[in-house]
């Protein structure tokens, strides 16, 4: 996947030089292992900063919201789906964008990898499907497929769904993936077990809102948790308030979530926040045959009405 970088730089340089865009949004090398930092490049001579590897899990659609410049954005499958969302929801104009599509083979889970080693990780490099981890002076080879972020392992839209440039051949999509095993596992629990499961899941939450802010879907000028007149949710560490934040955040993503995993990746305390959105994604698929961000030509099911919409829940 790192082979893409030459093409990304070349495309970025060309677009900046010929004036097609004012800036390119991509990633630059991070200062710690398994992290890259989103950045913008405005000068052709600065494109050398751009990088691409398996540490580009942050969703760059988040950096496009309401921007007015002409922008080229590096987009893997999920980013491109969120760009579609953004266009459909009028958060960015299609004609302002040049989408540099990246067929993606998944991002690695830095927490999972860190958890595999007793000592801190000094460096991580990659060679195709092999991840080389140096910890305490010793190098370990890992198969990338074993250390993917969970959402990437379950991804069935690795190729960008919308693009103007492509930095490599489209890749074969994964098939036969059981995307919702975790949802079914929770569904099989009793109400008390479910309650306790989410209680435990959310107990480390520090209300930093990294999950919300990493998400391209969350762009309200004032979030309901920040609203003070009226105040919908308490601001303390109360577990009920914390839970209210998490499930209401998820509701706001219903029919919009692309399962890019940015929320889970951003969480500083490792909460599996996708446990909420996955359930909604599965329901959207089953009830409306809908997966978010695949097309510009269809309104999302939750902002349209159809006479045959499932409505069994209304008595």
């Amino acid at each position: 996947m790192s082979l893409y970088i030459d093409k990304i730089k070349e495309t970025a340089e060309r677009l900046l030089k010929d004036g097609s865009v004012d800036m390119v949004i991509g990633f630059r090398k991070g200062s710690v292992p398994m992290m890259n930092e989103p950045c913008f490049i405005q000068k052709p001579q600065e494109v050398h900063q751009l990088v691409w590897d398996s540490n580009c899990g942050i969703n760059l659609a988040n950096y496009l919201t309401d921007r007015k410049e002409k922008i080229a954005v590096v987009a893997k499958g999920c980013d491109s789906r969120n760009i579609v969302n953004h266009i459909v929801e009028n958060k960015i104009k299609r004609e302002k964008l040049v989408i540099i599509g990246v067929p993606c083979t998944g991002m690695i889970d830095k927490r999972k990898i860190a958890g595999m080693f007793d000592k801190p990780i000094d460096a991580v490099t990659e060679d195709g499907d092999i991840i080389l981890v140096t910890s305490a002076g010793k190098e370990t080879r890992l198969n990338k497929t074993d250390v993917l972020q969970e959402n990437c392992a379950l991804c069935i839209h690795r190729n960008p769904v919308i693009y103007d440039e492509l930095v490599g051949d489209l890749i074969e999509e994964q098939t036969g993936i059981d995307r919702y095993a975790e949802v079914r596992r929770v569904e099989a629990m009793s109400p008390q077990e479910k309650w306790q499961y989410f209680e435990d899941l959310l107990s480390p939450c520090i209300r930093c809102y990294a999950c919300r802010n990493a998400c391209p879907l969350c762009y309200c000028p004032t979030c309901f948790v920040d609203e003070s007149r009226p105040q919908w949710v308490g601001k303390s560490q109360d577990p009920i308030d914390t839970r209210t934040f998490h499930f209401l955040r998820a509701y706001h993503c219903a029919g919009r979530c692309t399962d890019c995993g940015a929320c889970e990746r951003a969480c500083p305390v490792g909460i599996k926040v996708r446990q909420f959105t996955s359930k909604l994604n599965r329901d959207c698929l089953e009830m409306f045959g809908w997966e978010a961000g695949l097309t510009l030509d269809q309104r999302p099911p939750l902002d349209t009405y159809k006479p045959n919409d499932p409505n069994d829940f209304i008595k």
Partner: peptide, 12 residues
């Protein structure tokens, strides 16, 4: 640019 304005840095 890259900041998402979460509270991770301040809270940790």
């Amino acid at each position: 640019f890259s900041c998402i304005n979460c509270g991770t840095c301040t809270y940790s």
